[in-house]
Amino acid sequence: MLKELKTNIINTIVNLKPGEIGIITNFSVDQIPVKLQEMGCLPGNEVRLIQVAPFNDPLFLSVNGNFLAIRKETAELIEISKVA
């Protein structure tokens, strides 16, 4: 049962550890600025967490070949599935 629970928890970018990679699965279009999507934050794209500032905020990522930093509040809205 525990195992089932684990797989059901939704991962977001915030759950990545520095160096880990995820694939963006989903986010609410209303809440994610167009600019971020245009910088490559789109479903299906790969995102790698490079570094986090203290308190996990902001987060420094590389997505679709771009290097950028976003705040935690935004990162929490972007769902991903982790890649080993």
Binding site: M39, F60, F67, L68, A69, R71, E73, T74
Partner: peptide, 10 residues
């Protein structure tokens, strides 16, 4: 509304 995106150039 707040949002913040900053590019990190090489």
């Amino acid at each position: 509304r707040t949002f913040f995106v900053v590019e990190m150039p090489g």
